[in-house]
Design a protein around this nucleic acid. Structure first.
Lengths: 204, 204
DNA sequence: GAATATCAATGCACTCGGTATACTCATATA
DNA sequence: TATATGAGTATACCGAGTGCATTGATATTC
């Protein structure tokens, strides 16, 4: 009895993977706006209805791995070593996300595609921002749980907003200037470092 | 010959104002999602097509005054007194936006409505974020123009991202906790102050 | 091993935001 | 008075996303 998911679950996952790969290819070839959900479904040989069974919106097919990355960031905070200072926990959480992106997405070219589409499609941009914002709120909650004596809810939100805002904006600026992935990653790290200084002034 | 816009222009403005007022009322009464563009147009006694002649999307009818506020922020930076330190210029720009919001929107109830809709409608939330992000990039450009020796493009983006991100996240958190406008404004000011400390570490 | 429950996927009709086109008519201008 | 402009209209259309009833493969129970 090999554990693991059964055939049904595996087929479901396969459908999902096919949809992601197909969408990525079509977006690459024709551009985001010019590719309809019906086209993706057609090319993946499933119904349009099936697409929406797997992804709530067209944009989400691009952000499929975002939740895993968010979980990672939160886990880093929750599983910190006892006595870890707030600043270090947040820095580690950020670094984990950036490293994970660099390690997983950059080689596959997914990061590059996503970057291109973020720059060229306002709809994607809006969706990414919204997702990031929601994720940042969850991290803020985790941080508040972990350091209840040093933070209140609004301050936690402000700190996370500053950090995520800085990283996002820097990444976008770097993307627009030159798309080199290494340069973008470096810009994100620098922005994170800058924004983390907000924590140094908290005990006033 | 009274100067000013002619009758045509006045009627156009009137149509626009009617649309904004009608939309606000309907959103108030029925909620955002439950109100269609067709409903708004119908209630304002114009065609649906006319609505889209005035506003590019349904969300934009709520954000009609955003551009003026952005122009204000940029003007504050451009018209700073010679020798004003970077930090003070940015702080003044931010304060001007927050004050303008408090002064203009809070009395009319428009801020309260917008706040309610931001919290309850993901679509509005995404649109507001996107607008804020685009605006923040323009302020970053203005800041870069004003202080070319102290900033590079990525750093300017990071700093503005931190500030706007902090203020946005804090405002949202305060909105969710209790909708009191004074509390929200106060949270925004505190977040701005926190995020501005990023500037203290720039000369390293 | 047959009966039954579950659930991914389907087909279809529908809503709604947004657009294209071709038009009307009041207002502005010469 | 003649002409040009541009706000608003009617209509048909597109694409994203949903509701609903159905099918068929896989999982579970007896």
């Amino acid at each position: 009895m090999t554990e693991g998911p059964g055939r049904r679950e595996r087929k479901k996952q396969q459908t999902r993977d096919t949809l992601i790969a197909t969408a990525a290819r079509l977006f690459q070839e024709r551009g985001y706006e010019a590719t309809g959900v019906a086209d993706i479904a057609e090319a993946a040989d499933v119904s349009k209805r099936t697409f929406f069974l797997h992804f709530p919106t067209k944009e989400d097919v691009l952000l499929s791995d975002g939740r895993a990355r968010l979980d990672l960031a939160i886990r880093v905070i929750e599983e910190r070593a006892p006595g870890t200072p707030l600043r270090d926990a947040l820095a580690a959480s950020l670094a984990a996300m950036i490293d994970d992106t660099a390690a997983r997405d950059l080689p596959t070219g997914m990061a590059a595609l996503r970057a291109r589409l973020i720059v060229e499609s306002p709809a994607v941009q809006a969706r990414v921002l919204h997702t990031a914002f929601a994720g940042q709120a969850r991290i803020a909650d985790a941080l508040l749980d972990a350091y209840p004596d040093e933070l209140d809810r609004t301050t936690a939100a402000a700190v996370l907003g500053a950090v995520v805002g800085a990283v996002s904006a820097a990444a976008m600026a770097a993307l627009r200037e030159d798309g080199d992935p290494a340069a973008v990653t470096e810009a994100m790290r620098r922005a994170a470092a800058i924004a983390l200084t907000t924590l140094d002034s908290l005990g006033d």
